[in-house]
Amino acid sequence: MVRSVVEVTPVGQQDVADLAAMWLASRVDSGITPEVAARFASEGRLELALSRPDVHAHVARLDGRAVGYVVTSENPFGLSPEPEVAVEQLYVDPSARRHGVARSLLCAVVGLAERAGSDVIVSNVPTQSREAHRFFARLGFSSVLVRRVVGTTQLRRRLAPQGGAHSAVDQLIRRRRSLRTLASRAG
């Protein structure tokens, strides 16, 4: 059986609709509800990101059908003295996985990194994606750091002084909780 050839090209105007559809699918695949993903798309987040000069996107086609994409950025944090290329998103349609699509997309990333003078390519891999971790590890990516994330509200609550003066909002929340507790005990 002959393997189909994967064609990877930079995203042009003719590819935007395909990229947007795959981007929505990738958001849903990562656990975001279709409604939230559609809202992100309607807010123009993808177009805004792609309009930045340091962001590059490539689309992969298998037998003429768009089946994957990669979005990269150069020096994502701007703190490194050496140029870096970061794989921000890499997505392959589930029906096209294990056909060399992700490898072909990463070949385009290597070309970008070489043109940018970057000796390093980094990728943020979701912690829950075992398959992605294995894929990147097989290609030689190593773990450098653990990126921890917290919601703003949760961090504010945890940073609040314990036992000291509390904001009016904190006092209101505490009062409501104690009233709910009293009401549930009485009822």
Rank of each mutant, 00 (worst) to 15 (best):
A116T: 12
A116M: 08
A116I: 10
G117M: 13
G117C: 13
G117Y: 08
S118A: 15
S118V: 07
D119F: 06
V120E: 13
V120A: 11
V120G: 01
I121D: 04
I121Y: 00
I121C: 06
V122M: 05
V122F: 05
S123D: 05
S123N: 11
S123M: 00
N124T: 14
V125W: 00
V125L: 03
V125Q: 01
P126C: 12
P126S: 08
P126V: 07
T127K: 07
T127Y: 12
Q128P: 03
S129R: 12
S129P: 02
S129I: 04
S129W: 09
E131I: 11
A132F: 02
H133V: 00
H133A: 14
R134C: 08
R134W: 04
R134T: 12
F136I: 05
F136D: 00
F136E: 02
R138Y: 04
L139C: 00
L139T: 00
L139G: 00
G140I: 15
G140N: 02
G140S: 05
S142K: 14
S143D: 12
S143W: 07
S143P: 00
L145Q: 10
L145E: 02
L145Y: 11
V146P: 00
V146Q: 03
R147S: 08
R147P: 03
R147V: 08
R148F: 06
V149D: 08
V149Q: 07
V150K: 04
V150I: 15
G151A: 13
G151D: 14
G151H: 11
G151C: 05
G151N: 09
T152I: 12
T153E: 10
T153Y: 00
Q154K: 07
R156C: 01
R156I: 10
R156M: 09
R156F: 04
